[in-house]
Simulated scan of single mutants.
Amino acid sequence: MALSVYLAGQIHDDWRNEVRKKAEQKALPLHFTGPQEDHSLSDDIGEKILGEQPSKEYHDDAASSINNFRTRILLQKADVVIAYFGESYKQWNTALDAGSAIQAGKPLILIRPDSLIHPLKELSNQADVTVKTIDQALEVLAYLYK
């Protein structure tokens, strides 16, 4: 049984590659999707499709509409969502995706370090499972196959 896993979280470092690599090493039958990882494409997709926008606000609004459309479809097709909160970057999109997963009734694994226990306490309480590391999240998924 292969599962589709939506990897919600910031796109500024390679945490998704770590998840993919470790899942492959464990021979887990997982297919991964997530937000657009090409940051420039994500930021500029509105103008690429709709044409030049009159201001930065419209530029961002056009891109966010298309990125939200993409996220909504991929998240709804996912069997499970992993939301990764790290130490280094602002996590607004991660929180939005995790909340969307909860509202859609998608099983949610929340990864967050000890430093974010307090700010994410309500979200963590709504997640199906909260862990501290990528390895722990993958062990949760591996458990499905035992």
Rank of each mutant, 00 (worst) to 15 (best):
A2N: 11
V5T: 06
L7T: 05
A8V: 03
H12M: 10
V19I: 13
V19K: 05
K21R: 15
K22G: 00
K22N: 05
A23E: 06
K26A: 11
G34K: 03
P35K: 07
S40H: 15
G46D: 06
I49E: 07
L50M: 10
L50E: 09
E52L: 07
P54G: 01
Y58F: 12
H59V: 00
S64Q: 14
N67K: 04
N67G: 04
R70C: 04
R70F: 07
R72C: 00
L75S: 02
K77C: 05
A78H: 08
V81M: 06
V81Y: 04
F85W: 05
F85S: 00
E87I: 06
Y89V: 07
K90S: 15
S100Y: 13
S100N: 13
S100K: 12
Q103V: 12
Q103M: 12
L108F: 09
I109S: 08
I111P: 02
R112D: 04
I117G: 05
H118M: 09
E122Q: 14
E122F: 15
S124A: 15
N125D: 14
Q126I: 00
A127F: 12
K132V: 13
I134C: 10
D135F: 06
E139P: 00
V140N: 07
V140Y: 11
L141E: 09
A142L: 12
A142G: 10
Y143G: 11
